[in-house]
Nucleic acid binder design. Structure first.
Lengths: 173, 173
DNA sequence: CTTAGTTAGTTGCTTTATAGAACTTACTCG
DNA sequence: CGAGTAAGTTCTATAAAGCAACTAACTAAG
């Protein structure tokens, strides 16, 4: 049978209304290319053509992504010359706060998807040693694993995320 | 002028050849919806219709994503009945290793994009307190921040990631 | 035995996003 | 003047996402 009729726009779904912080992050940084732009911003890259050359991203997509990141307060534009005006794209505090996310991605990739060994070694300059991040509990300072955690609804909770779970579920994230 | 001619397929670019662990992660978990499926898998969701109902994802896209996650060893299918055969989708060790990534996303969302407060409170059952993860150095156990880190090429390094950086760059990720 | 419900997809169609490359604007340098 | 640089914008073609209907293979109710 023929599909009936397509009234509404069929834009890509937004995660904004999900009342989940993971979804909130993905709304900002979950699109294709976005976190690679943020990675390069941490490396000190700040100009349009440098992002383009290093990533091999299409110029129109790069334009969109930079605008999206600025809209969400991850990057800010600062003119470095007039006539013609040209901008640096720099991480804000909100953007620099993405470091734990980026680092967790890197560490997972190093461990599970780096057959030739890690492409990058990170050294902790205060102690001088190569380092990986260990995640510890803010209360007791013991290492955290998903099995030792329990999720309960918080002040921003809405129906659906922790309710309507299958019976044997053990929410950890 | 007219664009010349479009021989090659214009599929979406892969990040696989970038020799960067962040890119490797994104190849596996960087598509729209993917990390929300993984989040629900941590919540204990395991069946097709449960993912579909909870996420509001299209059925065809869900099919694709589950296959992609299985291909990359994040989920595995286990039959829970015959006639007709029906499967549970469960996290593998490689999939459970994504917890730090998911948690970092959640904590960023809680801090920067949760106007009504965090939707989920996580309790560390051994100590009984609500917890957030603190990232410490594996060598000296001091807290890590991007400014205290330096990136250098590792065994899996290839040209381009840490080379060809603008002069004032301070690579941290 | 017929009908409704469940589970897990698949198919068909429409809208949106991405990949390339060319084009544009506004300069600077030799 | 002509070439080069920087940052986009515009154009076209393909790929991905969204939605609803359809199918397959059962189970349970009436």
């Amino acid at each position: 049978m023929q599909p009936t009729h397509y009234t509404d726009a069929m834009r890509r779904k937004s995660f904004q209304e999900m009342h989940c912080s993971v979804a909130q992050f993905l709304e900002v940084g979950g699109e294709w290319w976005t976190m690679l732009i943020v990675r390069d911003a941490f490396f000190g890259v700040s100009r349009f053509d440098d992002f383009h050359d290093r990533l091999g991203i299409s110029r129109n997509v790069l334009t969109q992504r930079l605008e999206h990141l600025i809209e969400h307060g991850i990057l800010e534009r600062a003119a470095y010359q007039d006539k013609p005006v040209r901008y640096d794209y720099r991480l804000t505090d909100k953007g620099r706060a993405l470091w734990p996310v980026l680092n967790a991605m890197r560490q997972w990739g190093d461990e599970w998807a780096a057959p030739d060994g890690p492409p990058v070694i990170v050294t902790h300059t205060p102690c001088g040693h190569p380092t990986t991040a260990i995640h510890i509990c803010s209360a007791c300072r013991e290492p955290l694993t998903p099995e030792t955690l329990k999720a309960t609804p918080g002040p921003g909770a809405r129906d659906g995320l922790l309710t309507n779970l299958p019976p044997k579920a053990t929410p950890t994230a």
